[in-house]
């Protein structure tokens, strides 16, 4: 497992850019497809402790340390947020905490065309999820 998050982001950005300009609605369709590829969490994992505080949509994130790296898995009842979780997992799961903390997560989502999705932080809890990723990474240092 490498820590080349930037290369992973480049690859993702290329995928999305093939769908048109950054504001094209088709990006959401692709994002949701990515979310459908995510392994769902079991009911036992959908606990209050794993729940990320959000207003309307429910988001769960499970973090497991493994060999000095962080493994993330997540789920949501919102297809869009699930897609955002999938991007998050693609970019950050299996990385070293230092690499995660050195990366500007918000800028990464902006580059993919989902700035508005993550800036409406109060409504989908995504911002809380980003904070959670960083917090868990910091805890491993």
């Amino acid at each position: 497992m490498t820590d080349d998050i930037a290369a992973e982001l480049d690859a993702l950005a290329d995928e999305f850019d093939m769908l048109g300009d950054p504001m094209d609605p088709e990006r959401y369709r692709h994002l949701m497809d990515l979310g459908h590829g995510l392994d769902p969490l079991s009911n036992e994992e959908r606990t209050e402790a794993n729940k990320v505080r959000g207003c309307a949509s429910q988001v769960w994130l499970v973090t497991e340390p493994r060999d000095g790296r962080l493994i993330f898995r997540g789920d949501s009842d919102s297809d869009i947020v699930r897609g955002l979780v999938a991007v998050l997992v693609t970019l950050f799961s299996g990385r070293a905490p230092e690499a995660i903390l050195a990366f500007d997560i918000k800028a990464a989502f902006a580059r993919l065309g989902f700035e508005s999705a993550i800036s409406s932080q109060r409504s989908n809890g995504f911002f809380s999820m980003v904070q959670r990723v960083r917090r868990d990474a910091e805890a491993m240092l």
Partner: peptide, 8 residues
């Protein structure tokens, strides 16, 4: 999800 609909 209603939020997803609104965002699209």
């Amino acid at each position: 999800h209603a939020h997803d609909v609104a965002q699209i």
